[in-house]
Design a protein around this nucleic acid. Structure first.
Lengths: 210, 210, 210, 210
DNA sequence: CAATAAACGAGACGGTACGTCCTGTCTTCAG
DNA sequence: CTGAAGACAGGACGTACCGTCTCGTTTATTG
């Protein structure tokens, strides 16, 4: 592996929290207002009232800034949501698999159409398509946690005999998530509660007659 | 709606076919070699031995050029493939729905991993995520035709009693396509024949025990 | 000597008079309206309702077009002026050298401040400063004739004993013309009748006391 | 007066002296080598090893760059010349007006034919003809100082009784300068010591017989 | 009086330069 | 030493013209 020119790593302890938050806010605002391609590092710096170097010191690229800003936003949102509940994030387990998953998917539909999330999420997803590293980080940090919840719920359903024993939960969950994701990413169809409900029904009981 | 400054539309009949082909070739080559973001209009023009204005005269953006270049590439590929067969593009109908769809998906896997298609397809998909217009054109021109084939095959299966009567084919087909698409786009998992075969089995017979 | 690619000389007899006049008019108008540097061959062609090639066929450069246009304008002006007189252009010879030259210079002042002539004349002069060929043609075609008139008048004065015998008229006339030219070209001072009258007096009788 | 979009004035104290000098050198070299019209800002930047923006940041146009570069060159030349003398710039006053002015004019002839000065001076003069602002700056910065010296010397001569009392020195000096300037600018005649000597004689003693 | 050949209008083409914008680095100064 | 500020070399943007090169379409003799 090639070792970099060894820019002496900046001292994290002296980092300005104020600047960091301002940069996150500016980045998210600009992405929503003018779109990802017209969002520039210079623009973020100006809007955040920050020197460009402060951005280059702590992040490697525009995508990095956005990724962290979005993670921060998600964490905040989670905190807000989690404040009221004990177990901040888990798919409910009422015993009725279909109902539980439908409920979660409806929440996902709400989030995908929330304008606060829409633009940055889309921008990140697009960058991730073209830039494998960003894609993998996006995956690992933003999607993997939710995916794990599906895996857990499906395993539990499997133990309860509601899902066939041979089924691989990591593949099965894609029937709920991927069609929705594709409709959202590629504008291939409308995103509604009806649609997600149908997805669950089709997936659980199959297309072939019983 | 605001009408643009209305640069008088160029005369299509006098367009240089030579330049058009050179531009397509240069665009596809550059995308594969240096990636979408580092592919510049200037670079395409230089590589194609063409003036920049010739690109700006006929296309509105880098994405437009790439879209057309890719459509052209696909059309060529289709022509090559179709030359040998009578019915150039249709899902086979042997009576065995599962086998037929597995075969088609295996072909799709091959295409998605063909390096000739990979980079430009990915670039276009990414642009389409962020730029709705490109997204819709990508959909309409590149994906819709194949999707229709699935719809037809599923309808035929429905008539043969191999698919439940109430099933909506436009939703059902997403079980085959979307998971594969998401794995490809977002690096969420490996793409293999085994995987697509499994998708078909799960989708047709459902997750719940029979 | 290298013989050019030998573009077959165009047939002058078939040349469109209509286009030629339109090009002259457009060139002069544009120079006056937007200045020399912003006057483009494309602009002249568009304004004249003429193809670019028609300009390139008959002229070698923007300066060439302007030079001919200006010559044409001058010829027209001369014709108009000459229509009323018998001897269209000559410095009057009343026997009073000072008065005669003052009269001619006053006419020159009028011309230099005529807005119809100002812009193109200035543009040509400027081009001539930097482009020796244009400079010499400008000289030969536009200034030499007038200069010859001064030479003649000064010779006649010499014969009449009003100018010292040893004086070289080609140098002497510069005392009348050059200061005026420089004030006009380089904005080094105002251009008035008073000024030119003074020039004549100083030049004829010298600066040193008599 | 309309105030411009007001790009915030750059900080002069942080300006790179290195770049400035490189730009002057590149500009003067290019003008001499390829002429004014083929000298481009892009070319200057490339030759100077400088970004284009660095030129646009500090100068408004090609003419501005050249003007300052030439002023700098003149200042340097003056410094070199002035290093040896006490009074760096003044027309000598030996009591013999004709001899003194002849000497200065001979020096001017030398400068006008010095290839180092020729091209840029000519380019500037041409631009000044067509662009009044440049013309006036050229005048004020490059010619006015020398002109003042003539005025002083003529005044002194007037006090000594060598020049008629009524003579206006600002007009009289044009007899020495303008004919020479015109010959140089417009290629209307050769520039020699003989010629300038003659100018002085004619101007001082007049054309009319004594 | 057609035939034909040149000039013509139009404008696409390969290029060059424009003036602007942004990148990522570097330097200066304040806290 | 961090951080705001911003100058710097570099390079792409999208536009405007350059001068060349077809295209049909006049137009004006010539056979």
């Amino acid at each position: 592996m090639v070792t970099q020119p060894a820019r002496p790593a900046p001292d994290t302890t002296r980092r300005s929290e104020r600047s960091r938050r301002a940069i996150y806010a500016a980045a998210l605002a600009l992405i929503s207002e003018v779109g990802y391609p017209k969002t520039t590092i210079e623009g973020i710096a100006a809007r955040a009232g920050v020197g460009k170097q402060t951005i280059y010191r702590w992040w490697g690229s525009k995508a990095d800034v956005l990724l962290e800003a979005f993670l921060d936003l998600s964490a905040q949102a989670a905190e807000e949501a989690g404040a009221s509940e004990q177990e901040p994030y888990a798919i409910p387990d009422t015993g009725d698999l279909a109902a539980d998953i439908k409920a979660v998917l409806r929440a996902t539909v709400d989030q995908l159409t929330d304008p606060r999330f829409e633009a940055p999420a889309r921008a990140l997803a697009a960058e991730g398509v073209v830039n494998e590293q960003v894609g993998r980080e996006y995956m690992a940090n933003l999607m993997e946690p939710s995916i794990q919840l599906y895996v857990d719920r499906l395993r539990s359903a499997q133990e309860a005999g509601q899902v066939r024993p041979g089924i691989d939960p990591r593949i099965a969950l894609e029937f709920f998530i991927s069609p929705l994701a594709q409709r959202w990413l590629q504008y291939t169809g409308p995103i509604t509660y009806d649609y997600t409900d149908t997805l669950v029904d089709y997936a659980l009981y199959g297309l072939a007659p019983r």
